[in-house]
Write a protein that binds this DNA or RNA. Structure first.
Lengths: 259, 259
DNA sequence: ATCCATTTGTGCGTATGTATG
DNA sequence: CCATACATACGCACAAATGGA
């Protein structure tokens, strides 16, 4: 009894979820039912379920036939060491788009382009002066209509004069990586910086995240032989995305993993 | 205006933190001060600060001279595509230990070994039968005395007969990767599976995480030429760790990045 | 379209416990 | 022992969302 009540209730409910007594899509008892069965006030019942919301295990739905629902945990895989790396692996369109289709889901994305001042951290990664400007291609990526990830790609301004298509707001059919390669700016080396974080309010809004849902933040710097070409900042909705890397001899992996 | 009070207060405080008005180590106003300055009840003040705790921005400290403190955001980098991959890169000891020392911090780790039944998901990754058993080397990794990450590495049982040292509970000086290589089980290929998640209660306890702090979960499968040799499950305390991958031509990266 | 019932969302006041200096 | 600050818990009220009668 050293643990507070709300933690005990949270533990109880969590056990039911991870052992499969409650399955994705199932409803938890309503707050009033929890009050009765555990003999606590509504605030305490809410504190308990708030823990599970923060862990991404349940989702709250207001309204008459609402309630608290065990969340779906479907995952989408991003093959980080194949996409954009192996030239000619896919015939056209950009890497992410292909990935999603290959996994049998419906991708869609909205683009917009702005010209912004590079934050110091980003400028350093691109090897340009801080406060210099860059074109930013922003997109919200959806899978089956639901937001799945955000990507903002920063291109140094001088590069945009070389490749003015980067400034056009719409989609670029062959994908920007391929477009740049056609202009002599292929990217034979990439650096990925991956970390977990809580979303900013803006990110949470765009990704339609429940409070307490973490995100995976990936900063990918693309290098041509002579310079850093672009910096892509991708925010993956945490629990439903994973990033896969294959290192070393690709033949060996192919032997044991079928994609 | 349409936003609830506690969100407005949270936004206000968050702005002060991200703009640097409040710097890491600084104290927020106490709950009673927040009640006064924003004219709300204590519950509302707590709801507001709870948002920031969930975002990993602040830490609550009880006691006389406690309060709510803006968290340090120092990050530790794990070079995923160098550690354990480039043979002979470091003279001895295991990959993580070297990484931390190279970044000027004090690493330490506690080991324990158990024999457990492989969960279905892990068994599949190792290409062995579900419910077969495996040796698990568990460790808590600390940086300057504070827990930084957890790592559980699973070795199929038949492998342990080949390399019985794996079952010894203490540290293995040259590192397990090197030990296995000495027995003809080098790992020329690795697969990493990276995602963001909220910690289980056990993980939160071991890593001494504040409620609401996300983690980075990395599953690394190591392959010899003939089989999957091991599965390492690493839980990085989210906000203070990042994982770095270098893909493609390493010469190019070296030109632009100094480590 | 209206009203009602149910369920979660926000907010207040209060009381008591626990940790720390 | 006390003062301060956060931690837990109760009870209450009203708002907002949703679906059915």
């Amino acid at each position: 009894m050293t643990l507070p009540k709300y933690r005990n209730i949270a533990d109880d409910l969590r056990t039911q979820i991870v052992t499969g007594v409650l399955r994705p899509g199932d409803r938890l008892p309503t707050e009033t039912q929890l009050m009765d069965t555990f003999g606590v006030s509504r605030n305490t019942a809410r504190a308990a379920t708030a823990v599970l919301v923060n862990e991404g295990l349940i989702e709250r739905v207001p309204g008459r036939s609402g309630g608290m629902e065990v969340r779906e945990q479907l995952t989408l895989t991003f093959h980080a060491s194949e996409a954009e790396v192996i030239p000619g692996l896919w015939p056209e369109s950009d890497a992410w788009f292909n990935e999603v289709q290959r996994q049998g889901q419906q991708p869609s994305q909205d683009f917009s382009v702005t010209i912004d001042t590079l934050p110091a951290e980003y400028a350093e990664r691109l090897g340009v002066e801080a406060d210099s400007s860059a074109a930013v291609r922003r997109c919200v990526r959806r899978v089956n209509g639901r937001p799945s990830s955000l990507q903002n790609t920063w291109y140094p301004m001088d590069l945009c004069q070389q490749v003015p298509e980067l400034l056009q707001p719409g989609d670029i059919k062959q994908g920007t990586t391929r477009l740049l390669a056609e202009r002599g700016l292929s990217q034979p080396a990439l650096e990925d910086d991956v970390s977990a974080a809580m979303p900013t309010p803006e990110e949470a809004r765009l990704l339609e995240l429940q409070p307490g849902t973490p995100v995976l933040r990936m900063l990918r710097t693309g290098f041509s032989r002579d310079r850093a070409v672009r910096l892509s900042v991708t925010i993956f909705s945490g629990p439903i995305n994973r990033v896969l890397y294959h290192l070393g001899d690709p033949e060996i992996i192919r032997k044991f993993r079928s994609h």
